[in-house]
């Protein structure tokens, strides 16, 4: 009976014969570790890039978005828990799409990119890797929407195939990670730095949960860290919490909490700080950090005004806005 050690994420699960990793989908069968959801997504949608959210990466373009069952975090407020907190064998809906078919489907839907998203693509790493290779050969972009709970060697290897990531930084607090997500903070910070080192376009999302991670001093520390380690041009998205799954005891994030967090992060030096899950908020849009010109107006996931030049500059002062615009 051989026990296997999974090296993919910081949990490094020791998996006995017939068991799965903590993620539920990496299974020890006959002394070999099997990626049981390889080529078997349970969610396939075409989304706007803004839904990921990626605001500085091919704005307005459709992105072919997929996920399989399983996750290596267990967030009490998970919005995709029916997908992420189940193993493949528990899923009613499973599609069959090997990497080549997946890329063909994306192209048939006129998508320029594939997003590995919804649950956490870390756990279906091999499927992401092989699909990304074929997607890149076909001229498609690869987008990795993740909580960044992954070991550095596999991440570094994958980065060569990735174009952009939105990484969830759930709080700048290890205790929060342990109590709310079942993980730890440092591996996520290391992953973010690795993305930057490997020249993957990085945007960061922070879901603000009332009383748990909305302390302004912590938000300031987080913003300072992002500015120092990833650059002040890194977009930061503050997202509104809605009570769900195992966290129904807290109210939705008040609007002024989001406003204060945005002001704090901008005061700490970040140039592009957004507010998400609040339709019509001025923080949905992109402004020039030099002269305040409205560059991209968004209402929800829709772009209603686009004033950037073709090479991504402010039309008034020619400030270069960081991002991948076309």
């Amino acid at each position: 009976m051989s026990t296997l050690v999974c090296e993919l994420c910081p949990r490094e699960c020791e998996i006995p014969e017939g068991g799965s990793g903590d993620c539920r989908i990496r299974v020890n069968l006959g002394g070999k570790l099997r990626a049981t959801t390889y080529g078997r997504p349970s969610a396939i949608h075409v989304d706007p890039m803004e839904k990921k959210p990626l605001y500085h990466f091919l704005p307005g373009s459709p992105v072919f978005s997929i996920a399989t069952a399983g996750c290596n975090l267990h967030c009490l407020n998970c919005q995709n828990w029916q997908l992420s907190q189940r193993g493949g064998e528990e899923m009613e809906q499973i599609y069959r799409a090997d990497p080549r078919e997946l890329v063909k489907l994306a192209r048939d839907q006129s998508c320029e990119s594939i997003a590995y998203t919804y649950s956490d693509p870390v756990v279906f790493y091999e499927y992401v890797y092989d699909s990304s290779e074929i997607a890149r050969e076909s001229g498609l972009h690869n987008v990795f929407i993740t909580a960044g709970y992954i070991n550095i060697p596999p991440l570094r290897r994958l980065c060569g195939l990735l174009d952009a990531t939105n990484t969830d930084l759930k709080a700048f607090d290890d205790r929060f990670y342990r109590e709310t997500n079942g993980g730890t903070l440092q591996p996520v910070l290391d992953a973010l730095v690795t993305f930057r080192e490997e020249a993957v376009w990085v945007e960061v999302t922070n879901l603000l949960i009332p009383t748990l991670n909305d302390d302004l001093a912590m938000i300031r520390r987080m913003a300072k860290w992002i500015g120092r380690e990833l650059g002040t041009g890194t977009p930061l998205h503050f997202s509104r919490f809605h009570p769900q799954y195992r966290m129904r005891n807290l109210p939705p994030t008040p609007g002024d909490t989001l406003d204060r967090a945005r002001a704090e992060a901008m005061d700490a030096g970040l140039k592009y700080v957004y507010v998400g899950n609040v339709v019509g908020h001025e923080g949905n849009s992109t402004y020039c950090p030099v002269d305040g010109t409205l560059l991209i107006e968004r209402v929800g996931y829709r772009i209603t005004e686009y004033n950037l030049t073709d090479d991504g500059r402010c039309p008034l002062c020619s400030e270069q806005i960081p991002g991948i615009w076309q």
């Binding site: 296997l4 570790l33 099997r34 990626a35 049981t36 080529g39 078997r40 493949g88 790493y125 499927y127």
Partner: peptide, 23 residues
């Protein structure tokens, strides 16, 4: 048992994972 059943039916895959070693 359920996993084996769904592997046999092709609902799931027995693709070998990367990034592991015997304990």
């Amino acid at each position: 048992e359920l996993l084996q059943k769904r592997l046999e039916s092709g609902d799931l895959s027995d693709h070998e994972a990367a990034w592991y070693h015997p304990e």
